[in-house]
Design a protein around this nucleic acid. Structure first.
Lengths: 333, 333
DNA sequence: CTGTTAGCGCATTCAT
DNA sequence: ATGAATGCGCTAACAG
């Protein structure tokens, strides 16, 4: 590997001059510049990124912490991040969080020890305090799918309330009057907001919120099944079901089929997230969709602006929308 | 950030001594070592990875080129790679290949320019020649899911022939005599091998290979549907169908259902890959399974051994296996 | 076993 | 506009 010295020698200039044409900040005599460019080509010179990093205290890398969980979210997020960052000549160093707060802290440590210029973190388990501190004292950090009051600018979240609202309103518009709800853990903001949106739609339509029609579970397929069974055991009739995740919807669909129900005739179901499986379920799942890719791209752009002084335009919001497929049907009395 | 000098000063030793206790290669007087350790703790010193890289010409990073395609493969591969590399204190820099040979070359260039110590490449489009040259002249490189004769050690592939064989034998064991086959592009080694395995199973069972029962398509869902329709149009009865990918199986299942067939009674179907969707399809898909995670982990371990002089044991092979679910049934005449 | 010294390749003062 | 000198933080000879 040739160094900047050899380029300088071949071009008959000092290394400072080479450095200048390389970085293009200071101006250089045209003739010299050409000689340098030629030398660079002849030697097939490539600047050494490590040396450059040491000299200017910057690695042009951003660390991404992302948990294992589901494949769709994982790949959509990562692909969007990498794509927008690489276009800006930044590289992404990944750390995949094993579950557990200690493991995630370790992963962050790892990223920090790698001298990343910034961090993009998708974590539910790390504490607010830790993240705020990280962002303020160690490294510029942005958060995916999470909100912390102290650092609003660094947080990117979906409008879950609206998503919950859209799901339920769709069912209402189809004429359903009795709508059950399979909720994720309300201790998590996202699940709570979705439920809030659901209730708002109900109230707006002049209906009342009946707690007997709401099941609280985690977001798993298993709890989708459990939830449907329990709701039916409560013996309150309902013709439609909103699931706070595609996984729950999948579980509910399987359960309904086992119970001999015909879908969507006997029960309309809407899911949430619109991941790959929504399309593969039968009937194909009507679901609330939001784009992780958009969120990731915007978060990355924010980093580009803030940390690297670029000035991309940031489109401010990404709203959920409803994708209507085959799992919902007009209410037929 | 404290430097090694400050640690040396505080401990009252030279920076070499600090470096020695840090790297633990040369031996250091116990008392001195303790003073150094203490100073490190007091200052909360962290060695600067960039400076270290510059000094020893090594970044402890491995570049991973992986194409966009499907989420399951993407995340499974990446997670396994990252996990095994991070345990060894190596970090992974990712480049996600946009389709196209030029884009992938650019991505490799990007990784190389980042001074990765090694490359792990999952690409179908880059030419053998390019990859061999890369591995031999630029950087140690391993290939995922691809074989090149010139560099056998650097290639990690599945036993696709066996997988195709297993799929068909399963059907034969269930009593099926007339088995159709939806093939991926036979120009690709993997698809070709699977088909070869299918034929071997047929021949072994004393049956003949009927080209009329074989459809050649890409691996897409669409071609699953197209394939089934075309096979049926050929008017040769068959009671079972092997699909060379889960995607094709998904398409075939949807198509069969649209045709009013009852699955698996009217047609047994087996898929290949056993990705997430296999579980979500209805009926749940019986499929050939192989572990991308295992392959990725082994490839990473190979790098650890070869590039970083570690001596992990490499379990030599990862064989496909058949996961029987609900989409195959005994042949009932 | 320990300290001194000289790079690793580049960016960046500071003179000129 | 150009070149010489210095330093980024660390490792690795080398000498003692």
């Amino acid at each position: 590997m040739p160094t900047i010295y050899q380029v300088a020698e071949r071009a008959g200039v000092s290394l400072s001059t080479v450095s200048r044409v390389l970085n293009g900040k200071a101006s250089v005599n045209k003739a010299l510049k050409e000689r340098v460019d030629e030398a660079i080509k002849e030697l097939n010179y490539r600047p050494n990124a490590v040396a450059r990093s040491l000299a200017n205290n910057r690695t042009d890398s951003v660390g991404v912490l992302i948990p294992k969980r589901n494949a769709s979210v994982f790949s959509e997020t990562l692909q969007a991040l990498e794509c927008t960052l690489r276009k800006a000549h930044k590289h992404v160093v990944i750390a995949i969080g094993d579950p557990g707060i200690e493991a995630e802290k370790e992963a962050v440590e790892f990223l920090v020890s790698r001298n990343c210029d910034a961090l993009i973190i998708d974590s539910e388990t790390l504490s607010d305090e830790y993240l705020v501190n990280l962002n303020q004292t160690t490294l510029p950090t942005v958060l995916l799918d999470r909100h912390i009051d102290e650092i609003p600018d660094a947080c990117f979240t979906f409008n879950n309330e609206k998503g919950g609202y859209l799901a339920t309103r769709h069912l209402l518009e189809l004429g359903h009057k009795s709508i059950a709800y399979l909720s994720g853990p309300v201790s998590k903001a996202a699940a709570g907001s979705r439920l809030t949106g659901h209730k708002r739609a109900l109230l707006e339509a002049g209906l009342t919120v009946n707690p007997q029609l709401i099941f609280n579970g985690d977001a798993s397929e298993n709890d989708g099944e459990r939830g449907l069974l329990e709701l039916m055991a409560r013996d309150l009739p309902f013709s439609a079901l909103v699931c706070a995740s595609d996984g729950m919807a999948s579980g509910a669909i399987g359960c309904a089929r086992d119970l001999g129900m015909r879908l969507p005739h006997d029960l309309s179901i809407v899911g949430y997230d619109d991941m790959l499986i929504a399309h593969h379920l039968h009937p194909k799942l009507t679901a609330v969709h939001h784009s992780r890719a958009d969120m990731a791209a915007i978060a990355a752009t924010y980093i580009l602006n803030k940390v690297y002084g670029q000035t991309h335009h940031i489109q401010p919001s990404f709203e959920p929308s409803l994708v209507v497929r085959e799992s919902t049907l007009e209410f037929a009395n």
